[in-house]
């Protein structure tokens, strides 16, 4: 039996330990804010936090989730009150919006570790997250803005 937390709530799972966390979250637990984009950790749309670190949930198996604490976009703030979410709204980052929950989770993890990242530091961390609509300029601006609010 695999025991873990999702957004603070204890959960158990006794299915195939090879199943990626992404599909557990989406198809079994119903946390659909975490998106499927590539299945190979190439696009970042499925980014969640595991013990506070950003991970690609498509490439983390349920076996690896055992004993850890997972945070999804639903656990960040359902009202959109996290400073990163607020910055995303103020800068009006999204176009289609599909990749943005993954972008936000990656940005939150970045800002947790680096309170005032430079452009280069943002690029280095955020280049794992694809946005086909091409909103990178606004993502970078929103991260700077959130950093200001967090400071």
């Amino acid at each position: 039996m695999i025991r873990f937390k999702v957004n603070g709530t204890e959960r158990t799972y006794d299915g195939d330990p090879q199943m990626p966390l992404l599909w557990y979250l989406r198809d079994i637990a119903g946390f659909t804010g975490t998106k499927f984009g590539c299945g190979m950790a190439l696009c970042g749309a499925c980014t969640v936090h595991q013990n506070g670190d950003a991970v690609r949930s498509c490439s983390v198996s349920m076996g690896e989730v055992d004993g850890t604490s997972i945070t999804t976009i639903e656990g960040l703030s359902t009202k959109g009150l996290h400073p990163v979410q607020k910055a995303w709204m103020e800068i009006k980052v999204p176009q289609c919006g599909y990749c943005q929950t993954g972008q936000i989770m990656q940005a939150v993890a970045l800002l947790n570790q680096n309170h005032n990242p430079s452009d280069q530091e943002i690029d280095a961390v955020m280049s794992g997250n694809l946005c086909r609509c091409g909103t990178y300029q606004r993502i970078r601006a929103a991260i700077h803005q959130a950093a200001k609010e967090l400071a």
């Binding site: 804010g33 998106k35 009202k79 959109g80 709204m89 936000i104």
Partner: peptide, 21 residues
């Protein structure tokens, strides 16, 4: 005027429903 997308709050909270959802 500079109005935001209607779905913006739902997008940043993961509530927006895409086909995948």
């Amino acid at each position: 005027k500079d109005n935001a997308l209607f779905d913006l709050p739902d997008i940043v909270t993961g509530k927006a429903t895409f086909g995948m959802d």
